[in-house]
Amino acid sequence: MTKKTFSKMLSANDVGSTGGHQGGILVPKSEAELLAFLPHLDPAVKNPDAWIECEDEVGGLRRFRFVYYNNRLHDPNGTRNEYRITYMTKYFREVRAREGDTFEISREEGSRYKIRIVRPIAESVTPQDEKAFRIRITSGWSRVH
């Protein structure tokens, strides 16, 4: 069986540390492979959604809502046209997810989605190395091979 894994480095907004209200993690429309990995949502329906059952790091069952906010396609004054995964706040709080952690979601064909939080490995940097040591932080999704 083929296993696919996708990851996203979490932002402060994703984990709720900015105090703002966000409607879940954004799934860009440009990420065709990720969208094909998640349940199909019919754009002909206004704001279609599907529940994603996931097994977490310790075997617990989590349910997230995958939704396509698409009122721009259905309402004359609609503004939203974006995919999001919502209902993640409780999970992020319980696992103490922080900005810079990576959220991973994977699945083998015919099985339940699996999720986990991957923490960055702390490296010690001497003052002499600081100028050469750079970390590029991205906020988008990526496929893990």
Rank of each mutant, 00 (worst) to 15 (best):
M1D: 12
T2F: 09
K3Y: 10
T5H: 02
T5C: 02
F6D: 05
S7P: 09
K8L: 05
M9T: 15
L10G: 03
L10F: 05
L10V: 07
S11G: 02
A12F: 03
G16E: 02
G19N: 12
G19D: 05
G19F: 08
Q22V: 05
G23S: 06
G23K: 12
L26N: 13
L26S: 08
L26R: 15
K29H: 03
E31D: 09
E31L: 00
A32M: 09
E33I: 00
L34P: 07
A36I: 00
F37W: 05
P39M: 01
P39S: 07
H40L: 08
L41F: 01
P43E: 01
A44R: 05
V45L: 02
V45M: 04
N47R: 04
P48F: 00
A50R: 08
W51E: 15
E53V: 05
C54A: 13
E55V: 02
D56I: 05
D56S: 06
E57C: 01
V58Q: 14
V58H: 13
G59M: 00
R62N: 12
R62A: 01
R63Y: 01
R63Q: 11
F64I: 01
R65E: 04
F66N: 12
F66A: 09
V67G: 03
L73N: 03
H74M: 06
P76G: 11
T79D: 03
R80W: 02
N81Q: 04
Y83G: 10
Y83T: 07
R84E: 01
R84C: 02
I85T: 11
Y87H: 15
Y87T: 12
T89M: 13
K90S: 10
E94D: 12
E94I: 01
R96M: 14
A97E: 12
G100N: 03
D101T: 09
D101C: 04
E104N: 11
E104W: 07
I105G: 09
E108A: 10
E109Q: 07
S111R: 08
S111C: 13
R112H: 11
Y113I: 04
Y113F: 13
I115R: 13
I117P: 07
V118N: 10
V118E: 09
R119L: 04
P120Y: 07
I121Q: 15
I121A: 15
A122D: 14
A122T: 15
A122Q: 14
A122L: 14
A122S: 15
V125S: 03
V125R: 02
T126R: 05
P127T: 04
P127Y: 02
E130R: 13
E130Q: 11
A132D: 14
R134W: 06
I137E: 05
T138G: 14
G140P: 06
G140D: 06
W141P: 03
S142D: 08
V144W: 01
H145E: 15
H145C: 08
